[in-house]
Design a protein around this nucleic acid. Sequence first.
DNA 1: TATTGATGCGGGAACGTTCCCGCACAAGCC
DNA 2: GGCTTGTGCGGGAACGTTCCCGCATCAATA
Lengths: 367, 367
Amino acid sequence: MTDTPRRGGPAAALRIRLVDVAREAGLSKTTVSAALNGTGRMSDAVRERAREAARRLGYRPNATARLLRAGHARLIGYVVGEFANEPGSYMSSPYFAQLTSATATAALRHGYALVLLPARCGPEEWADLPLDAAIVADPLDDDPLVEDFVAAGIPLFTDRSVEGRPGTHWVDVDADAAVREVLDHLREQGARRPAVVLPGTVTRFHRAVTDSYRRWCGGHGTPPRLVHTGGPGDGAVVAAVEDLLAGPGTGPDALFVLAEASPPLVLDAVHRAGLRVPEDLLLVCASEDASAAHTHPPVTTLSLRPALIAEKGIELLMAALESGSREPTGAVVPTRLELRASSLAARGPGGPAARGRAAGGDRAGRA
Amino acid sequence: MTDTPRRGGPAAALRIRLVDVAREAGLSKTTVSAALNGTGRMSDAVRERAREAARRLGYRPNATARLLRAGHARLIGYVVGEFANEPGSYMSSPYFAQLTSATATAALRHGYALVLLPARCGPEEWADLPLDAAIVADPLDDDPLVEDFVAAGIPLFTDRSVEGRPGTHWVDVDADAAVREVLDHLREQGARRPAVVLPGTVTRFHRAVTDSYRRWCGGHGTPPRLVHTGGPGDGAVVAAVEDLLAGPGTGPDALFVLAEASPPLVLDAVHRAGLRVPEDLLLVCASEDASAAHTHPPVTTLSLRPALIAEKGIELLMAALESGSREPTGAVVPTRLELRASSLAARGPGGPAARGRAAGGDRAGRA
DNA sequence: TATTGATGCGGGAACGTTCCCGCACAAGCC
DNA sequence: GGCTTGTGCGGGAACGTTCCCGCATCAATA
């Protein structure tokens, strides 16, 4: 029996290894390993002896060594393409907060853990990490983030539709259908001059939304009223809304705020403009913020379904990981319109929205 | 030369190894390794030959194997003790969102990546992960989460003060000072009947706050007006505020909402109770929500400094990790009162707060 | 010409685990 | 008693990397 000596100096941080347990129990490392893992063939006495020795020495298996044997780490990198703000700020957005936590939960349910990577980080940041896959949230068009992972041969999931590169998977919302649903809803509630507030950034999603809006306007003989915010954040959106409503001439009779903002603040801005909601202006916000349900009146929101996207995306990723296929896949999920009082016509009979039918929705208590 | 054969079946997913590159370049794996890592002694020609071969074959080093050699994974587990809600929901709280992202950013700056663990998860969830340390956000008293990590010998950081177990580190806010600062500020602005809204959950922090509040009231001859919310979430806090203000008799003339809630919603609730802010009621919310700056009037907030806590905590953790010391450490950081119009007396001369000085801007220093 | 020192590269052990084997022994069967 | 079959355990290779060495070769010096 060779005397596997304690490596390192005399004061080396002694981490108990399998061989240490084996020597303590008077067994071989093979037997101890099998004993602790509940595999192999051995008498109950020996198994218990091994376990007892491990307990006595406080043995904890080295995770890295196991991973090396296993060949995978069950680790998924998570990085967001984000507006080039200070790193990590994306968590302040309810959409990203939900996407992140839902992704983590879904991945963990499949036995994978999420590794939080810095926003817009390059390969040098994750090259040393044993990643089985990666998730890129909200990438730009032809994002280098995506390229890097593809080049590294790491399977990838993103919440924006990408061209089918090998190993890439995506889930996206049906932007066109969402815009039409909202505009149809507003029109049905009597609105004839709906305006849309969009973020200033140019992404695939926002282009799709803009196109869809213009198409809808064309089809309904309505002049488009499109406003872009000066930047990200509540302040910019509120300012854009104030500008829009303060303008001269006949203002819009409905507002669809597609730029992410706190619904209470948007509602407040409308109120300060002297307009009642929904009497003078119907309001719909694209937002995941739960506070929309607690305003007066509650604000109708369009949910972009980050949780559903995460769920579906992890599903695609797991399927690819298990089959080993690098065939690209993708899926479209529907948005969800949470009808609340802010977009349900409360006008008296004779008003343009007199026929507004009862809201079939969720918390739809009409005003 | 032994012919290291391709393991696995004929269709094995062939991952290029160091030996493959070595064979391609006609060198030894030692030389190739040194060449790619920029270490060792060799001619420039050989180094370039190795790099070229690696590039040609698309070689990517196996991260797990490197970690095994290195002995550490530079991975930190992140788990939150959370109200026992659906897992992952903690991201919807601005405090946790900021704590999480600030922790991730600070850790990454030191070369460590954060692994998102499910809320309240046990050792079996992270036993297979090569964690160098762990972070427990918002643990309960004697939380099993903490015990598990301590038992596993994994260094730990938490944002609540814990007794000095070996390998544990904490950073906490000075709750007592914070409460006194807010109450002193409100009193200085003329408030004589400040009320406090607290969450229903019993944690060390909230006990400290309650004690501090009662002490302050005792010292100022003010009867304590303490309200607990029925549960977590905006709805419960708003309901508590409504109840408090709708009560008979002389209501409070200042409100300190310590339960986390959306400031716009709280302000709205006060307005709906028929009270003007700050004329009839001074308002301070403990919140990290940026929307507080955009309401009308803007709401004074008490920041519990999640970003600072994360920063300081990672610092402690890194110091312990580098020195290898298991000596417990801890630190207290100050809260920050962001003075805004909602708590700055705007009463005319002769009012009880006539001496209230002009608000000194957004993040004004203390009054 | 011998001795040193530097240079250029490779052999092989380690990191700590899992798992394929093989060996010894006992029991059952003809 | 020889043969198989089964049980209980251990030896040693493998996972893919890094790094400590040692062995050549060659220039410079005594």
